[in-house]
């Protein structure tokens, strides 16, 4: 994933926000399904939700590998999957976090600190010859940051993968065009197998 943005403007990515029962093996079920059906994943993030019985898995899927509709329908067949929201990038807020350890000689250090300020990144750890910095932002901001740091030499880096939620409605609740309505949601109630 380093270097070019795997889910940049022109790539065929889509975000699935999958609410699952918080049970052993549920991540294995989801990832096994993607593997078995030949669906590609760009990134996957999973963590418990505000409700201890449920976890949310945010998956950035590659639409070049299969139609989104098949992916969501097949995912839905997993008994532990309770709800899937398809988050169209245009109607959602997306965030990712990266931590980077970058080489930083005495001369370069100030340049790197400056970049960190420009990108509103944070310095997490300072070594003799290196700095570890973190940035949360959109995937493209993270890409830009990585490009800027590249010349100094990246020692190692770790991206979390994307997490996303629907954009909130700015209009009054009665307004017809709601941001969330642009994001198809399949809840278990209307869900069939």
């Amino acid at each position: 994933m380093s270097g070019s943005n795997p889910y940049g403007q022109d790539s065929q990515h889509h975000v699935l926000s999958v609410l699952v029962q918080n049970r052993p093996g549920v991540l294995a079920r989801v990832s096994a399904l993607f593997a078995r059906r030949g669906y590609n994943i760009f990134s996957l993030a999973v963590a418990p939700t505000e409700h201890p019985d449920y976890s949310r898995i945010t998956i950035v899927v590659d639409l070049a590998s299969a139609p989104l509709e098949q992916m969501t329908k097949q995912l839905f067949k997993l008994i532990d999957v309770v709800r899937i929201s398809e988050l169209d990038p245009r109607f959602s807020v997306e965030r990712e976090l990266i931590m980077v350890t970058v080489k930083a000689t005495a001369e370069q250090r100030s340049q790197i600190v400056e970049l960190t300020n420009i990108f509103e990144a944070r310095i997490l750890s300072v070594g003799i010859e290196a700095l570890t910095v973190s940035l949360d932002g959109s995937p493209s901001a993270i890409d830009d940051f990585m490009k800027a740091l590249h010349q100094y030499g990246i020692v190692e880096s770790q991206r979390t993968g994307l997490v996303a939620l629907p954009k909130l409605d700015r209009a009054a609740p009665s307004a017809t065009s709601s941001a969330t309505s642009s994001n198809a949601t399949h809840s278990s109630q209307g869900k069939a197998r």
Binding site: V20, Q21, L78, I79, D80, V81, V82, R83, S188, Q189, G190, K191, A192, R193
Partner: peptide, 9 residues
């Protein structure tokens, strides 16, 4: 116990 399973008939 199976909130994710509601077959549509």
């Amino acid at each position: 116990s199976l909130p994710g399973y509601r077959p549509n008939v």
